[in-house]
Design a protein around this nucleic acid. Structure first.
Length: 158
DNA sequence: CTCATGATTGTTAGA
DNA sequence: TCTAACAATCATGAG
């Protein structure tokens, strides 16, 4: 059943790759987050990666999981539970999720194209959205209202 | 108060 | 080809 053409090689590679992935841990010791030493700029237009089928399923799963475990705290709990269930699902059940993920990918490409284009013109043309002045009403509401009742202060005594 | 982490799998882009 | 990082989520820890 099902004569496999010369694709075995790919399979093997995948397995190996997975192993490496297994070793990888996002949390390592360093924290690439918050990097603003000199050259770290976040592009507001930078398109984020499309959610994979797993995430699509997870989104719904999270909701359900929370209903069953409203007391659960932490994302790891849902992540683990979701991952376990995900592996338990058949391909057919994942199909709808994959379909959605596939669509996201298509859109992602589109957004990416626009993003690339913008970046390219940014160096050459520069400009485009510089006009935003106006409308930047920052209503702070009551700042002065921060008057703390003296009673509060009088409380602090060490 | 604010920032970062943890945990899952899949996908994407870069070297 | 292969590697590494990142996508969402939210409570909790540390400073």
């Amino acid at each position: 059943m099902k004569p496999v053409k010369g694709k075995a090689a790919v399979n093997k590679v995948s397995k190996d790759a997975l192993k490496t992935v297994n070793d990888r841990k996002v949390g390592k010791s360093s924290k690439p987050t918050s990097k603003k030493v000199g050259a770290a700029k976040k592009d507001p237009n930078k398109p984020k990666r499309p959610p994979s089928a797993f995430f699509v399923f997870l989104e719904e799963f999270r909701k359900t999981f929370k209903e069953k475990h409203p007391n659960v705290k932490g994302v790891a709990a849902v992540g683990k539970a979701g991952g376990e269930k995900w592996k338990s699902m058949s391909k057919s059940e994942k199909a709808p999720y994959e379909a959605k993920a596939a669509k996201k990918k298509t859109e992602y490409e589109k957004v990416m194209t626009a993003y690339n284009k913008k970046q390219a013109s940014r160096t050459d043309d520069a400009d485009e959205e510089s006009e935003k002045s106006k409308s930047e009403v920052h209503d702070d509401e009551e700042e002065s209202g921060e008057v703390i009742p003296s009673s509060s202060i009088a409380y602090v005594v060490s």
